[in-house]
């Protein structure tokens, strides 16, 4: 079996295992729900995870490596990880949960005659994680910005009024 067919035939199983691995990070009592409901609005976490899984797999196997489309597909998922209560390592570590699965399902068959391809897959996973790291960091920055903007917006008109009356200087306001 050539590498391409192998990658295609194993896709569903790898995605399933990775999604399971991600779900298993949530409190046990709630995984049943993220697992069973397919409503993208009723169960957004499940929907985001599934979308991310497909995007990750397509990217690391070289199917779809255009940075913009990969970013767009991962956006929601990374933002979710960035807003959830976890360390950054925990937030992004989910990407590396793919490795043991790949090593179990793809490596044994590729090791013999196409190790090159397999190593390429793992390298792309590393690049992808770095890409996600950027997105994660920028999501965290957005969160910090939102705090500042919100405080400023809450008193926007008050600030203008205070400037007008010389209570605060214009430079202080912005």
């Amino acid at each position: 079996m050539d590498a391409k067919t192998l990658i295609d035939t194993n896709k569903d199983e790898i995605l399933r295992q990775w999604i399971e691995a991600v779900y298993s990070l949530y409190p046990l009592e709630t995984t049943g729900f993220v697992r069973t409901s397919s409503d993208p609005f009723g169960n957004p976490v499940g929907d985001m995870t599934k979308q991310a899984a497909a995007a990750i797999y397509n990217a690391i196997t070289g199917e779809d490596t255009a940075v913009d489309t990969v970013k767009a597909a991962l956006d929601r998922f990374v933002k979710l990880r960035a807003a959830q209560r976890a360390n950054p390592s925990q937030g992004l570590g989910v990407f590396y949960l793919m490795k043991p699965i790949l090593r179990k399902l793809l490596l044994p068959q590729l090791a013999k005659d196409d190790l090159e391809t397999y190593l390429g897959v793992e390298s792309r996973l590393d690049s992808l994680t770095l890409l996600a790291f950027d997105m994660y960091a920028s999501a965290r920055e957005t969160l910090a910005d939102l705090r500042i903007t919100e405080i400023r917006n809450q008193h926007a008109q008050l600030t203008r009024w205070a400037q007008k009356h010389g209570v605060i200087s214009t430079s202080q306001a912005r």
Partner: peptide
Amino acid sequence: TPQQLIADRPAFPD
């Protein structure tokens, strides 16, 4: 390992 880093819950709530 990454698995150890991110696994933040026990296998079954004790």
